[in-house]
């Protein structure tokens, strides 16, 4: 059972971090960071197969791959940003976490710009 593995990893890491925080806060941070990474990578590999199935369906239903890839990119950026920001916040660096989130927002907007530009172009052309 995958979920058991992940939960156990999480609980053990949490215990370790709690014990270590008194003695060595920097090691506790490292423990939480590594745990986060391990869980993240583990889940990402699972998500990958789901995405492959989705793409397969998209191709079958004759849907433009453009929409899918854009949405997937946005979701991926959101997740990675969230992950990074939370790690920064764990380390007590709220300011850096805010900057990471800001960067994520900007990058999401950058992805949106081509769609927006194309949409605007069409709108202007349709209206005589």
């Amino acid at each position: 059972m995958d979920i058991m593995k992940i939960v156990m990893t999480g609980i053990i890491a949490a215990l370790l971090a709690v014990v270590l925080r008194e003695e060595k806060p920097e090691t506790a941070f490292a423990v939480s960071l590594v745990t986060g990474l391990v869980i993240f990578v583990f889940v990402i590999t699972k998500l990958n197969s789901v995405m492959t199935v989705f793409k397969h369906f998209a191709a079958k239903a004759n849907i433009d791959i453009l929409y899918f890839s854009t949405i997937l990119k946005v979701i991926a950026i959101a997740y990675i940003t969230e992950f990074g920001a939370q790690i920064c916040r764990d380390a007590g660096e709220g300011a850096i976490a805010a900057k990471v989130e800001f960067a994520g927002k900007v990058l999401i907007m950058v992805i949106a710009i081509p769609i927006l530009a194309a949409l605007m172009d069409i709108m202007i052309k349709i209206i005589p």
Binding site: Y67, T70, I71, V74, I75, A78, T81, E82, A85, E101, G104, K105, I108, M109, I111, A112, I115, L116, L119
Partner: peptide, 15 residues
């Protein structure tokens, strides 16, 4: 479920 949600919704809306 963070502040990102708003931005994602904008793009999804555009789509």
């Amino acid at each position: 479920s963070s502040s990102m949600k708003r931005y994602i919704n904008v793009i999804v809306g555009l789509m």
